[in-house]
Design a protein around this nucleic acid. Structure first.
Lengths: 229, 229
DNA sequence: CGGCATCCGGGAAGATACTG
DNA sequence: CAGTATCTTCCCGGATGCCG
C-alpha cells in the first residue's frame, strides 16, 4: 500500500534516533539497531554474500538482514557490489570507513569479556574467532616472535601473522604457514582461552594440527583472558 | 496477571540475546538495548539521581529508564546506593567495571564523529560535552602544556586537567583553575570544534570566561575534529 | 517530587512462506 | 540463492496513577 510506504519512510527519516550531538549517541543511531554491529563483524574480513551472512548469524532472519544492510548502506558503512564475471555474484562489503570500526569490536569485546555472565561455550563464528585473536593477543607473552599461522574452517581459510609485537590477520588462502589449525571455529577459543591440552581437543576430532607442533603448543600462551570483574 | 509476569520474567531470562560467544556480541547483550549506553554515559562522571538522568536524557521515559537501570544493575554495571544522611537520597552509580567501559565511548565516538550525517548542532548534555573533550584532545597540539580548566554548567561543575600530554576530567567543585568557562554545555563544542571566535559566543551570552583569557583563546586549538569519511 | 507499576498505541523484530 | 510478503510477538515511548 502506498500509504504504508509513506508512513514507514517518514518513520525511517524521523525514526527512532537519539537527538543528541554526542558522538557515541550518533554511533548508536548508525549501528545501534539489533544485529547491525554483528553484520559488520561478519564483514570485517572481507565481502560476503547475503546467504553467508544469514547462515553465520544464527537467529537473524532474512527480512531483518535486508533491513540492516539497507540501513548500513544508507549510512555509508556498507556497499553492495557485483563481483565481475564469471562469478557475477552480488556481495556486501564494508566501505573504508566501515573497516575503521574495527577498534569498536576490540574495545567492546575486551570490556565485555570481563562480564561474570560471559559464556564462552556458546557457538562462535569463524570471523569472531579470528577477531578475538586480534583482540586478545598479548605481545609480551609472544616475546618478539615472528610466525605465520593458518586456520581452515569448513570452506574458509585465514592467516594470522605475528611480527613486530603485533598480530594481524586476513581471510586468504593458506600459504607459507609455520603451522595450520583445521577444524571447527569453536575449537580454537576452547584451546587458546580454555587452556585445554591441544591433544585433548584433537582427540575429540574437532581440530587438526599440521606443521610445527611445538609452535602450536606454544600458541595458546600468547593470549591472556582478562580477569573477571 | 501472574501469567504475564512469568512470561515477561522468562522473556528477560532467555530473552532477546545473541547466543554467541563473541565478546562483542556479549557486550551487546549487556548494553545493546536502547538507551542503555547513554544511561551509562550520564553516570561516567559519578553518581546521579533518577530524575537527573531522566531530564538529561531527552526522550527517555521513566518506565524505560527503570528497566535499563534494573538491567544494568543485574549485569553488574550499575549499583543502587543510598547517600548517607542528611542527604538520604537514592542514587545510581557505575561499578568499578562499569567505569571501565570508558574506552567504548571514546572509540565509538571518535569513529561516529566521522559520519557524514553527524550533526553537531543537536542538543548536548554536560556529561557528553566533558567526555568529548577527553575523546578529542590532541596532546601534540597542546604541546606539553599544564593547566586546570573549569567548566560550570547550570548547577554542575567540572575540572579538566591537562598534564603530561593527557587530559583528565572530573565532576568536582571549581578550585585553582587557570580559567573557567561558564554557560550552557552546547557552547563549548561550538567554540572548540566549530572553531568560532570566542568573543562571538560570549556576545550571544551563552558562555562566560573568567581567568586567563589567553589560555581560553588557545584552548580551542587543543582539539581536532577528524575529517569526514 | 522520586521511584515504580500499569495500560495502550505504534512500530520493530522474529518466524514462516512465498517468488524470481 | 537472494530476497519479499505476511503475520505474530514483543519492545519502546507516552500517559496516568499509586505510594513514600
Amino acid at each position: 500500500m502506498k500509504l504504508d510506504k509513506i508512513t514507514s519512510e517518514s518513520a525511517k527519516a524521523t525514526g527512532r534516533r537519539y537527538h543528541d550531538a554526542c558522538g557515541a549517541a550518533h554511533g548508536l543511531d548508525l549501528v545501534g539497531e539489533r544485529w547491525a554491529l554483528l553484520v559488520m563483524r561478519e564483514l570485517m574480513f572481507g565481502p560476503r554474500r547475503f546467504g553467508d551472512l544469514k547462515s553465520d548469524l544464527c537467529g537473524l532472519s532474512a527480512n531483518v538482514l535486508t533491513q540492516r544492510l539497507e540501513g548500513l548502506e544508507e549510512a555509508g558503512i556498507v556497499r553492495k557490489r557485483k563481483l565481475p564475471p564469471p562469478a557475477s555474484v552480488q556481495v556486501y562489503e564494508l566501505t573504508h570507513w566501515g573497516y575503521e570500526a574495527q577498534p569498536v569490536f576490540e574495545v567492546l569485546g575486551r570490556w565485555a569479556a570481563r562480564s561474570p555472565k560471559h559464556d564462552p561455550s556458546l557457538p562462535i563464528s569463524a570471523v569472531s574467532t579470528m577477531m578475538s585473536l586480534r583482540t586478545m593477543f598479548d605481545a609480551e607473552a609472544a616475546g618478539g616472535l615472528t610466525a605465520r599461522i593458518g586456520f581452515v574452517f569448513d570452506d574458509r581459510s585465514f592467516v594470522a601473522t605475528i611480527a613486530d609485537d603485533e598480530l594481524t590477520s586476513e581471510r586468504i588462502e593458506i600459504s607459507d604457514c609455520d603451522v595450520v589449525f583445521s577444524g571447527e571455529p569453536s575449537a580454537v577459543p576452547e584451546y587458546v582461552y580454555g587452556k585445554r591440552p591441544l591433544a585433548d581437543i584433537e582427540a575429540e576430532g574437532r581440530l587438526t594440527v599440521t606443521g610445527d607442533r611445538a609452535l602450536a603448543e606454544r600458541f595458546q600462551t600468547f593470549f591472556g583472558l582478562p580477569e573477571k570483574a
